[in-house]
Design a binder for these strands. Structure first.
Ligand SMILES: Nc1ncnc2c1ncn2[C@@H]1O[C@H](COP(=O)(O)O)[C@@H](O)[C@H]1O
Length: 1062
DNA sequence: ACTTTTTGCTCC
DNA sequence: GTTCCGT
DNA sequence: ACGGAACGAGCAAAAAGT
């Protein structure tokens, strides 16, 4: 626990105010960390202007730490910072969070309209024409009509009415845009006659609305301030970072945490952390702060002593240390920058060499590593070697470190072909080379072989690094339920790259857009950097630890710290290391291999080179157990081993445990060591989409199955442990325990007496207690996510249980659903509105299924889930992870909502979409206002070929600035604007009220527009003109005709629109 | 203080 | 979440 | 059929911006 969760704004004498973490020193004064102090001369320190107790009890803290308040003087730390004291305070009081944040997010900042709700209708004239460059404060007031109980599905109304006079920030761009703006849309559109039957909308109804419209039209003029976001506009907004693991971890009680992190013994760990910390906080010897050139080297050696050894999970409480690191790093950065300048020219020359792997541009490349490798649309690969060669390390690499490593080699020898030696730390470069080889190969089998080879070397030479290597290959740092989050994404990584290379942020951005991959940018920018002092080669361990450290950092200015740590890592990268490091930070390795293949690779590696064998005898006997197998038996063996590994992992998705077990007992011991255990969330069974009832019957032909409602909520895996504690996990194994105190407190009445432990598979759904009905997902999602206080819960939840996979110490995974369901109903007690069993029907009649589907929709559900009861009805994910079928209206060719929308913008594609658009901005048409209002972005449903075509056909219609009659929010400004020409048919699952889209604004909701849930491209409507696109009022009608909305507005008598609430 | 931006192995 | 693609 | 990688909306939280 760190005091980092406490931050505030300091009034700094003579300087700008700044935010910082707040600490207490041993004299009880509010102090700043040494690093912060390093930047701000002590003499400038001022007082606290504002402080934030992120989500913890305010009054208690106020009382316990009176000095931590507004107006307190901030001093330099005297005698060290008193971090643990505050930390403990937070830890103890898990509840009573009085949370300051009621603030409604009216984050809407429309580029054009400023919805203001006062009745002040007058002021606006025909702003349209005026369009003077900018602003026009226009106080438009789209007044909301209360037509129907507009308080939609119970979605909270944002109270804040913000006068909407958002001052347009004009940018230079405006001038140019003016031209476009001026053309009055009226003329152009005047003739349009929206008719064209929309598939579902009532076409003509629109006309009738004239009165209403009129009202809107005249009184609700939207002022158009073309406050356009210039790209240039501070794209460099300051860095930020989301917090990280520590806070999530904090949210669970110590007890729970312990039970979760099985593999690491916390006790030991904490001791270490504690002792380390104390030694630090006391003195923090100046000597230790000597500036360091080779940051990474230092830190890795440090970690070596204290952290990631032996599966100890690194403690997060390392603030002091990281601060020290930074002082060193900063110095280093400066040096780098200087050098970087004259380097720039060179960079530019080199860059173009890269070719991007993009649709339609296949580049035949023979992987230099894989002999006879499959060719694959390859990313590129600049001559990593050339430039790098020139800057040969000044510091000699450690023995055994070799720049080339080829895990794709045939007849790979785990010892001889490795680039490092026994008991050495695995070089990060070896991992990078492995990833590189995999990325260059498209064959999954070959990929797994490559990865397996790498793992064979790791597990025999450096077994301690196996777990870390696995994590890095998957872009993870810990099991999901431990909540370790990096808190860094694109924006911040770009900043770090800019810092590391000395190039401008804008350049990085434009490069990234062109390359479609920040990793490539990081690598190519890097490769020309020459450093005077060559950092030591990175090791897997050092990188992992650094990332974990980044994740553990929270609090004010943490993100600046994170960036600088990342910068130091990037600076130390050679060859392709930077590419993968950057991608790791972005959370996407995109090498064409992920978890499933990795598990198989582990299995192969363990078969060929058993990890559990005696390593004291060197070389070990079994290095290639596949040598004498025929290809067939080998394949069968792989399959068999993979099943063991995969099933173990599905039951116990924790690499700490899995790898440890493998190293100790090999694949055969997994069954015992990695099995289903309450407290560790197993992977959930997923479902496959089906095209219709007929499709379902066909797939389950002759097999007994059941149909259940598919509830629209979120999956909740409820664990009851032997010790009586209850944990709740999400579909992705995130720990949601603190999100559902209400479920937990009432759970006891839902179980029958003999239940001592269990794991339930359920859906948590928002529930309207009064009307006793299901509320839409959008309502559910407004619940607090962590540390929810039961007394303050506004959105109630009903649990719909549909499966039971563990009961009283016994795993039910192998039992068929019919038995599991029986046990579920037998041992649990339904409580209306709180905990019920999923509605189901066991039938094989087409008609009944069809009817049940209709019913489910009427009951505010998404459709049906169809599951086999007897045959192939176990919960064994390793056999097939998607055994269930899902049937939704929108999967049917005939069903679902579909709209004809106008394409008005395009977004550059990334990754495999580099060079084409990756997505588009779509709008519906409002004939009354004669404007196009955005309704959604669209990025799926088209084939690569269609995408290419669209990119081409829209190219001629690119315009420099949006038309004045485009209503959009600056947040979704596309890379290219288009003249409205094409109409596309788009299908969706639902329509929702949007915080950013403007479609039908004011018609279904006073301020929010409408957007589409799960939009996908269906086809080009070249038979339609843009004026024939779906109209705003049709959109509004579609929204209103949804069951969920109808059901909520219907019998809702009281509640009255909160419209004239103001 | 209040508002905006950024993030999330997102919850869907 | 949906969809498409290569194996 | 599988695994992977493109892409969607939208929320709360965290941290930065003003
Ligand atoms: N009766 C049900 N059985 C299984 N899953 C359900 C059921 N009702 C709702 N669901 C949810 O539907 C999800 C699967 O649908 P999808 O994510 O669209 O593939 C699961 O993760 C559950 O959260």
């Amino acid at each position: 626990m760190k005091s980092a969760s406490l931050w505030g704004r300091i009034n700094c004498k003579g300087q700008h105010h700044f935010n910082s973490n707040l600490y207490l020193d041993y004299c009880g004064n509010v102090a700043l960390s040494s690093r912060r102090l390093g930047k701000i001369p002590e003499v400038n320190l001022g007082v606290i202007l504002y402080r934030n107790y992120s989500s913890k009890n305010k009054s208690l803290l106020k009382q316990k730490f009176p000095k931590m308040k507004k107006g307190s003087k901030v001093v330099a730390a005297a005698g060290g910072l008193h971090q643990t004291k505050i930390g403990n305070f937070f830890k103890r009081d898990a509840n009573g969070s009085s949370e300051a944040g009621e603030m409604e997010s009216s984050k809407k900042k429309l580029a054009v309209s400023s919805p203001k709700k006062e009745k002040a209708t007058n002021s606006s004239e025909a702003d349209e024409e005026m369009e003077s460059p900018k602003e026009k404060l226009a106080v438009s007031s789209p007044k909301k009509e209360k037509t129907n109980g507009s308080s939609e599905a119970g979605v909270k109304e944002s109270p804040k009415k913000k006068l909407a006079v958002s001052s347009p920030k004009k940018e230079k761009a405006t001038s140019s845009s003016e031209a476009g703006e001026m053309e009055s849309p009226k003329k152009k559109l005047a003739v349009s006659s929206p008719k064209k039957e929309k598939t579902n909308g009532s076409s003509e109804a629109r006309e009738m609305e004239s009165p209403k419209k009129k009202l809107t039209g005249s009184s609700a003029k939207k002022d158009k301030k073309e406050e356009r976001e210039l790209q240039s506009k501070q794209s460099d907004s300051k860095d930020k970072n989301g917090k990280a693991g520590s806070s999530k971890a904090r949210s669970s009680t110590g007890k729970k945490r312990r039970s979760e992190s099985t593999s690491s013994d916390d006790g030991d760990n904490q001791e270490k952390a504690a002792s380390k910390k104390s030694s630090k906080s006391n003195g923090k010897p100046e000597a230790k702060r000597q500036r360091r050139r080779i940051v990474v080297e230092d830190s890795s050696s440090e970690e070596e002593v204290a952290s990631e050894e032996d599966f100890k999970v690194k403690s997060e409480a390392e603030d002091e240390e990281s601060e020290e690191d930074e002082s060193g790093e900063e110095l280093e950065e400066e040096e780098e920058e200087e050098e970087a300048e004259d380097e720039e020219a060179v960079e530019e020359e080199i860059k173009p060499k890269r070719k991007s792997k993009a649709i339609g541009k296949k580049v035949e490349v023979k992987s230099k590593n894989t002999k006879q490798a499959t060719t694959k649309t390859i990313p590129e690969k600049t001559g990593n070697k050339a430039p790098a060669q020139g800057s040969k390390p000044a510091v000699p690499p450690p023995k055994g470190w070799k720049p080339d490593y080829n895990p794709a080699k045939n007849k790979y020898h785990p010892i001889d072909d490795a680039s490092w030696e026994k008991d050495q730390r695995v070089p990060y470069l070896a991992l990078a080379k492995t990833l590189e080889a995999i990325e260059a190969t498209s064959s999954r089998l070959k990929n797994m072989e490559i990865l397996a080879n790498f793992f064979r070397s790791v597990l025999i030479l450096s077994p301690d690094d196996l777990r870390l290597s696995v994590y890095l290959c998957l872009n993870k740092l810990a099991p999901a339920y431990e909540g370790v989050e990096l808190g860094v994404a694109e924006t911040n990584v770009m900043k770090a790259i800019a810092q590391a290379t000395g190039r401008s942020l804008d350049k990085i951005k434009s490069d990234a857009a062109a390359a479609g991959d920040l990793g490539i940018v990081a690598e190519s920018s890097r490769s020309t950097q020459k450093t005077l002092f060559q950092p030591q080669p990175l090791t897997v361990q050092a990188v992992f630890n650094k990332l974990k450290e980044v994740a553990g950092m929270t609090g004010s200015a943490s993100h600046a710290k994170k960036i600088s740590m990342i910068t130091s890592l990037l600076v130390a990268c050679k060859y392709s290391e930077a590419r993968y490091l950057a991608r790791s930070l972005l959370g996407k390795l995109r090498i064409g291999l992920a978890e499933q293949s990795l598990l198989q690779a582990i299995a192969q590696a363990c078969f060929l080179t058993p990890p559990e064998q005696d390593r004291s005898e060197w070389p070990p006997k079994k290095l290639d157990c596949g040598k004498k197998c025929s290809a067939e038996t080998l394949k069968a063996k792989f399959e068999e081993e993979a099943y063991k590994v995969k099933s173990a992992f599905c039951e116990c998705p924790n690499y700490d445990i899995l790898v440890k077990a493998l190293l100790e007992v090999g694949t055969d011991g997994l069954r015992e060591k990695c099995k289903l255990t309450p407290g560790i969330p197993p992977r959930p069974m997923l479902a496959q989409p089906t095209k219709g009832v007929a499709d379902v019957l066909e797939r389950f032909d002759g097999i007994k199955f059941t149909c259940e409602y598919k509830y629209d909520g979120e999956r909740a895996q409820i664990h009851l442990l032997e010790d009586g504690s209850i944990n709740i996990y999400s579909r992705n194994q995130e720990n949601n325990t603190s999100k559902y105190p209400d479920i937990i407190s009432r759970f006891s009445k839902c179980i029958k007496g003999d239940v001592k432990s269990c794991i339930l598979d359920t859906e948590a759904v928002a529930w309207d207690i009064e009307k006793e009905q299901i509320l839409p997902f959008q309502v559910l999602s407004t619940r607090k996510r962590k540390d929810a206080d039961e007394a303050e819960i506004k959105v109630q939840v009903c649990i719909f249980a549909f499966d039971l996979i563990y009961l009283n110490g016994e795993s039910l995974i192998k039992k068929p659903l019919i038995e599991r369901r029986e046990l579920l109903r037998e041992h649990f007690q339904a409580v209306t509105g709180e905990f019920v069993f999923a509605t189901s029907v066991d039938t094989d009649s087409m008609e009944e299924v069809q009817e049940f589907l209709e019913e489910s929709v009427k009951g505010n559900c998404e459709g049906l889930m169809v599951k086999t009861l007897d045959a192939k009805a176990s919960y064994e994910l390793a056999k097939r992870s998607q055994k269930w079928l899902k049937l939704k209206k929108d999967y049917l060719d005939s069903g679902g909502d579909s709209l004809d929308l106008v394409v008005i913008g395009g977004f550059n594609g990334r990754g495999k979409r580099t060079g084409t658009y990756g997505g588009f901005l779509l709008a519906c048409y409002d004939p009354d206002e004669e404007v196009y209002q955005t309704i959604c972005k669209l990025g799926t449903g088209f084939s690569d070929e269609q995408l290419l075509k669209h990119t081409e056909s829209l190219k001629p219609h690119i315009i420099p600035n949006p038309k004045s009659y485009y209503r959009f929010n600056t947040q979704l400004t596309p890379d290219h604007w288009f003249d409205a020409v094409e109409v596309w048919e788009v299908k969706c699952a639902d329509l929702s009220l949007s915080p950013v889209h403007t479609a039908a604004e004011g018609m279904a909701d006073p301020q929010r527009g409408i957007s589409l849930r799960f939009p996908r491209f269906m086809r080009l409507r070249d038979d339609k003109k843009i004026e024939d696109a779906t109209t705003a009022s049709q959109v509004a009608d579609m929204y209103k005709s949804q069951e969920v909305v109808k059901n909520s507005t219907n019998n809702k008598k009281g509640i009255d629109d909160d419209d004239d609430f103001y």
